[in-house]
Nucleic acid binder design. Structure first.
Length: 495
RNA sequence: GUCCCCAUCGUCUAGUCUGGCCCAGGACACCGGCCUUUCACGCCGGCAGCACCGGUUCAAAUCCGGUUGGGGACGCCA
C-alpha cells in the first residue's frame, strides 16, 4: 500500500501572514489535496520573545480567508519541547552529539577573527574531543553547555534529491558541528523542526528555498535518530522588484495577505495569482478553478528561479502587481453574480450604504446592478466607491466629470429641468423609450446627444464613465433619476 | 570569506531533462486600431526576450566549460 502523504505548514507567529508564507501554505495545501494526503498546521512558537497570540490569530484568519483547509492542528511547537530535548539526549547517548562548553563570547571572537582572515566561519570543534573526564569536570563546575551534532568527518557528503532542485550534495567538511540545544536548555529550530516532522510523520517537506541550506543538517539529524528521511521540495523565493527578499519589515502591509482582503481581492483570485508565482503548467494556463488547480498541480511544475512580486509603491494606476489585479478583475467579471454578491454586500456595509432590501425584495435588482457595473471594476471595494450612486442617494460628484460634462455647458441649467420633466412624464420607463426621449431632445436643441448623455451620467452617477447611459437610467430608476436631475441645477449655483 | 542555488520579453512564464517542428509561444503591462454617448468589455494589430564568451554538433534557448549578474545560507532566530 502506498504511504499516505503528510505535509505541514509551520509558520512562526511573529507577525501577519505575508505572501511568501501564503505561497508556501498554498503549495502544501495543493499537494495534500492533489494526493489525498493530510496538511498539518503547526505553529512554531518557540521564540517566546517574538511570538504573539495576535499573530497566531491573524495567520489563521488569513489562511481561512484564502480558503486553505488543514486536517490536523493547529499544533504548537512549544508544547513539544520535551520531545526535542529527549531527542537531543538520545543523540548524546548514542554518541551522535556532544556537549560544548564554549561561551558565546569565545565563539563570537573566533567568528570575527575568521571574518578578518577571510576564512570559513565554521565552529572549530574545540569541545568535540573533550574526554569524558573533562566533560564531567566542567559539568561539575556548573559550566553551561550547548549540545552540538557530531557531524561525520572525512571524505563523505550528505546527499538528497530535492523534487524541485534535483540532487543536492553537501560535503561533510562544509557542515559545522551545529548547535541543537542552547546553553539555557532550549532546543533550536533545526532540531525542533526535524523532531516535530518525525513525530508528525511528515512525508514531504515543501518550503522556501532559504531552507535548502539547512536541509543537509536536518537529514543528519534524521539519520542519527534512525528516522526515515522525508522528501524535500524547495520552492523558489519571492523577491521584490529590486530583487530583495520580500519582508514585512521593508514592505509593510502591502505584502500582507490581509491587505489584499481589505483592498477588495476575491480570495480565490489571490490564491490563483500566488499559485502562478513560481509555478506553471506546460500550457502556461492562467485561470484555474479550485478543482482545476488541484488537478493540475504538481511539485515538478515549481520553477527554480526566483520570481518577482511586482509590488508598486506610489503607482497611481496599480496599487499592487498588475497581474494580480488582472486576475482578480477576471474573476470579478466572469464569476456567477451570486458568488460575488456577498463581497459586494460587505463593501456596502463597510461604506454604510447597505440596505437589507437588497437581499430581500430588491435582490433581483441588486444582482442585475452588480452585473451591469462590474465589467469596469477591478476590486470589490469599487462597488462601495465608484458604484456608490447605484446603491445610495448620497454620492459624491467627481469634480473632473462635473467640470467637463456639466459646467462646460451653461445650457444644462435649463435643460436639466426639462429633461427631468420629460423623463418623469414617461409611462413606460424602458431603455428604448428613455433613449428616444433624450435623443429627440438633443435634436430639438440642435446639439449632439453625447452632451446630454454625458451630463446626465455625471449627474446621476457622479462618474465620468460607466455603463451605457440608458441602462444606467433604468437601473437607477425613474423616480431617482428625475430627483437627481432636478437637483443637478444646483451644481451651477455652487460654482 | 566559505558553501549552495539560479539566469528566456518590463513582470509571470512555455520551451531546457529527451538538441532540429523555436529567426522562441502565451499572459499581464504598454502602444495603435475597430466598436462606441463615456469608460470598460470584446476583437484586430504592434512593441519587447534566450546575460556574455568559448566549445561540442550538419544543427544549441536547449549539451559542456568559463565569465558576469542575481539570490540564499553560513546565529546559543524561526
Amino acid at each position: 500500500m502506498k504511504q499516505e502523504v503528510i505535509v505541514r505548514f509551520p509558520p512562526s507567529p511573529t507577525g501577519y501572514l505575508h505572501i511568501g508564507g501564503a505561497r508556501t501554505a498554498i503549495f502544501n495545501w495543493l499537494f495534500a489535496q492533489k494526493t489525498g494526503g493530510k496538511l498539518i498546521l503547526r505553529i512554531e512558537d518557540t521564540d517566546a520573545e517574538r511570538s504573539s497570540e495576535e499573530s497566531i490569530q491573524g495567520i489563521i484568519e488569513s489562511l481561512k480567508w484564502l480558503g486553505i483547509t488543514w486536517d490536523e492542528g493547529p499544533y504548537f511547537q512549544s508544547q513539544f519541547i520535551s520531545d526535542h530535548l529527549a531527542a537531543a539526549q538520545k543523540l548524546l547517548e548514542s554518541g551522535h552529539a556532544y556537549k560544548c562548553f564554549c561561551t558565546k563570547e569565545e565563539l563570537d571572537r573566533k567568528r570575527d577573527q575568521a571574518r578578518q582572515r577571510k576564512t570559513a566561519l565554521q565552529y572549530d570543534g574545540t569541545c568535540r574531543h573533550l574526554s569524558p573526564e573533562e566533560v564531567a569536570e566542567k559539568e561539575a563546575a556548573g559550566m553551561p553547555y550547548t549540545i552540538r551534532l557530531k557531524v561525520p568527518r572525512g571524505e563523505g557528503f550528505v546527499s538528497f534529491e530535492d523534487i524541485v532542485y534535483g540532487i543536492i550534495e553537501k560535503k561533510y567538511e562544509d557542515i559545522e558541528d551545529f548547535v541543537m540545544v542552547r546553553s539555557n536548555g532550549q532546543p533550536l529550530y533545526v532540531l525542533s523542526n526535524a523532531v516535530d516532522d518525525i513525530r508528525d510523520r511528515v512525508t514531504h517537506v515543501i518550503r522556501g528555498q532559504d531552507g535548502l541550506a539547512n536541509t543537509p543538517k536536518q537529514i543528519l539529524i534524521y539519520k542519527a535518530l534512525g528516522a526515515p528521511v522525508p522528501r524535500f521540495a524547495h520552492m523558489s523565493l519571492t523577491l521584490d522588484p529590486k530583487k530583495a527578499k520580500i519582508s514585512k519589515r521593508t514592505h509593510g502591509e502591502r505584502v500582507a495577505v490581509h491587505f489584499y482582503k481589505e483592498r477588495g481581492f476575491l480570495p480565490w483570485a489571490f490564491v490563483n495569482y500566488l499559485a502562478l508565482l513560481g509555478w506553471s503548467t506546460p500550457d502556461s494556463r492562467e485561470i484555474f478553478s479550485k478543482d482545476e488547480l488541484i488537478e493540475a498541480f504538481s511539485l515538478e511544475g515549481i520553477s527554480r528561479a526566483n520570481a518577482i512580486f511586482d509590488v508598486r509603491k506610489n503607482d497611481p494606476k496599480f496599487f499592487t502587481d498588475p497581474k494580480a489585479i488582472s486576475i482578480n478583475t477576471h474573476y470579478l467579471r466572469t464569476l456567477p453574480v451570486e458568488e460575488i454578491e456577498p463581497y459586494v454586500r460587505k463593501q456596502l456595509e463597510k461604506t454604510q450604504i447597505w440596505d437589507p432590501e437588497f437581499e430581500a425584495i430588491k435582490r433581483d435588482w441588486f444582482l442585475r446592478t452588480i452585473d451591469l457595473i462590474r465589467t469596469r471594476y477591478h476590486v470589490t471595494t469599487d462597488f462601495g466607491t465608484l458604484g456608490r450612486a447605484y446603491f445610495s442617494d448620497d454620492y459624491p460628484i467627481e469634480p473632473k466629470a462635473l467640470k467637463k460634462n456639466v459646467l462646460k455647458h451653461e445650457g444644462l441649467k435649463v435643460w436639466f429641468p426639462i429633461l427631468a420633466d420629460r423623463l418623469q412624464g414617461m409611462d413606460t420607463f424602458s431603455v428604448e423609450e428613455a433613449e428616444k426621449v433624450i435623443r429627440e431632445m438633443a435634436d430639438e436643441l440642435g446639439i449632439k446627444a453625447g452632451i446630454l448623455i454625458n451630463a446626465i451620467r455625471t449627474a446621476v452617477t457622479g462618474q465620468p464613465k460607466g455603463p451605457g447611459l440608458f441602462d444606467v437610467l433604468i437601473t437607477v430608476g425613474q423616480r431617482r433619476v428625475v430627483e437627481r436631475l432636478r437637483k443637478a441645477v444646483t451644481f451651477f449655483k455652487l460654482h
